[in-house]
Simulated assay, not measured.
Amino acid sequence: MPENTSRRGLLFGAAAVSTGAFLTACTSNDPKESSDDDAKDAPVADEKPGKKVTIGFAGPQADHGWLNAINVQARARAKKYKDVTLEITEGSNDTAAQIGQIDTLINKKVDVLVILPADGKAMTQAGLKAMRAGIPVVNLDRIFDNPQAYRCWVGGDNYGMGLNAGHFIGEQLKDKKNAKVVELAGVDNLELTKQRTQGFDAALKNYPNIKKVARQAADFTVESGQSKMSQLLQAQKSFDALWNHDDDQGVGALRAIKQAGRDEFLMVGGAGAKSAMDAIKADNSVLKATVLYPPTMAASAIDLARALGQDKGISGLAEFEIPTSLTLYSAVVTKDNVEEYLPTGFK
């Protein structure tokens, strides 16, 4: 299909029909004329310079270690490619402000947009506007509530994060009678927090000897982690394990634990901060593991955006087009494998 008609007409139009139709309609070769031999030579993105691509990147304000790592990963990945120009916004937690930033990137006619929305549901129209303008959107982490608002979604597995934390704790306590666990959750009105708790609870159902006896919701900050953990420690005179959703608030939680002089339990963190990995490596606190929510997803989003801008697929896959979604795995980092994951730890 001619390049001048394929992007605007089929980018949004095919998505409006279905994701499957999009994959069929926008391949680089006409499927009716392709043979098995053609499929073997499907164009794929690689590190060699190709068609120049301008990628617009719009994310929330980097007021948290993980969010800052998202920006760092995106910038570093873009610099890796000589054919990529990155237009990055300042970032804002205000939905209206972020929508304005996306409008600016659309008006600049960037080739592809990578968006980590402050609020996926509230910003769906921004994604739709970009797609209608013929600009493919890579929706990062917080998902829009309409699949027509993005070409590809890439993000973490919040349910899997809780599931893996629960299974790790379960295996550590499987031989202990009447084991008790507590949970220090994140922001309760966020869907990701609910999913992490749901995964954790689902895993614990496999261990009838373990009971969750308390749960507190914090706010992903050091201060909230310390105050909420203090409340948990005061209410629970003894327990065997703690699942903490976020390593930033975990810094505060560890302070509260140290101040209380408690060490009868093991702690599992979440996200993969460098401070958590350092503590796991040192093995001198209750923190024995952290479950990753990899900020490397931002680097992957740049890879996918570049491939979209160059009308290419992904090396290692037979598909002519990039997939519509990519969910990252939440690995459990312990003392046994921390050296492998330490380079990915964020500050």
Rank of each mutant, 00 (worst) to 15 (best):
Q101G: 05
K180F: 06
M161K: 11
L11T: 09
S18F: 05
Q234T: 09
D175K: 08
M277A: 05
A218T: 00
T327I: 05
T324Y: 14
V213G: 10
P2I: 13
Y293R: 12
L11S: 11
K82M: 06
L86Q: 03
D41Y: 15
K79G: 15
L190C: 05
P136K: 06
A39H: 14
L116S: 08
P2G: 10
I102A: 07
T27R: 15
G270K: 01
L254C: 08
L173C: 05
L10F: 12
T221L: 02
I102V: 11
A69Q: 12
A165R: 04
D175F: 12
A21C: 14
H167G: 08
Y207V: 02
G345H: 02
E3H: 15
S28E: 11
A305D: 00
Q98F: 07
D157K: 00
P49L: 06
K274Y: 09
F57K: 00
E47D: 12
G134T: 03
S224Y: 01
N178Y: 05
K212C: 14
N93K: 07
L328A: 00
A58I: 06
Q148P: 01
P31Q: 13
A76Y: 09
A42I: 08
S28R: 15
A130D: 02
G345Y: 02
E223T: 09
S224D: 01
L128V: 04
R7N: 14
N164S: 07
A42P: 06
E264S: 13
F57D: 00
M131V: 06
H64Q: 12
A74R: 02
P2V: 13
Q249E: 13
E90C: 07
N337M: 09
P323F: 00
A76C: 08
R77K: 09
K51M: 10
D247A: 07
V222N: 04
Q61L: 14
H64R: 09
R196Q: 05
V17R: 15
A16I: 14
S315G: 09
Q125T: 14
Y293A: 08
T89N: 01
N244D: 15
D283V: 05
E264F: 07
T5G: 13
I322E: 04
N68H: 14
K288R: 12
N164P: 09
M131E: 01
Q310H: 08
S238G: 13
V137R: 06
L140M: 00
L113S: 12
G225L: 01
A301K: 00
L163C: 12
P295L: 02
V53S: 03
V182P: 06
K180W: 09
L204K: 01
N178H: 12
T197C: 10
